[in-house]
Computed example of a mutant assay.
Amino acid sequence: MKIRILRVFAAVLLLSFALPSVAQNVRYEQQGTAYVTAEDQWIADRLVDQAIGAPQGADAQVVFYRTHDQVPGPVRVDGGAGPLALLESGTCVALRLVPGSHAFVIDGRTVTVRVEPGERDYVRITSAPTGPKVAISNALTFLRLVTGKRDPLYASN
């Protein structure tokens, strides 16, 4: 009888350790993919904060990054007052800005970014022989390209 009680107690003890991980998976499944994506984006933003620094106070930040490509030479990023950066393949630059709308010229192509106080936006530059392709991006895409991993290990994975 004592052995049977010990076995039941051991089984309950083992299940109690596994229960939090099961509950975690159920939470993600019930919340849906939008919740998981938003959480991954939040975590990616925190990782970028650690890597390049968070926007300070009422300032905003724009991160320009160039993907790894085979096109030689830098891509020039110009602001209203002249050149801001020269991006080689696989590099990035973070610029502190006052909140508002800003226009940038990237090798002849204009992109407008509107940033709010304490916010960070991303501009992805992909070089091609016909000229750079410019697109507004996000922290998840930025981290995937910087780390070289398709699916970084975030809390939801």
Rank of each mutant, 00 (worst) to 15 (best):
Q30M: 07
A38E: 13
Y28T: 01
A94D: 11
A58T: 14
G100N: 08
V48K: 11
D59Y: 12
A38M: 14
R46A: 14
V48N: 12
R46C: 03
E116H: 04
A58C: 02
D40H: 12
A23W: 07
L47R: 14
G90S: 15
V93F: 12
G118E: 04
S101G: 03
L47I: 06
V26L: 15
V36N: 03
Q31G: 01
P83V: 11
T67P: 00
H68T: 13
D78Q: 12
T37S: 15
V115M: 05
R109P: 00
A38G: 15
G90Q: 12
Q24S: 06
Y65L: 12
V115Q: 02
R66Q: 12
Y28Q: 03
F104P: 09
R66A: 09
E119Q: 11
Y65I: 07
P83D: 04
E39Y: 09
Q30I: 04
R114W: 08
T37W: 07
A81F: 10
V93L: 09
A94G: 05
A85V: 07
G82V: 05
A103M: 09
R96M: 07
F104G: 10
P99L: 06
Q41D: 15
T112C: 06
V77R: 02
A103C: 01
A94W: 09
T110L: 08
D45I: 02
Y65H: 11
A81V: 06
Q61V: 00
H68L: 13
L95T: 04
P72L: 04
A85M: 04
R96P: 07
G32E: 05
F64A: 12
Y65Q: 03
F104D: 12
D49K: 02
V36Y: 07
Q50T: 13
H68N: 07
R109C: 02
E39M: 14
G73H: 00
G80W: 01
Y35S: 06
P99G: 00
R114P: 08
Q30A: 11
D107G: 06
D107M: 09
T67I: 03
Q31L: 10
E29D: 10
L95E: 09
Q70G: 05
Q31P: 00
R46L: 15
A38S: 15
N25W: 08
V26F: 05
A44C: 07
E116P: 03
R76D: 00
P83S: 13
T37C: 01
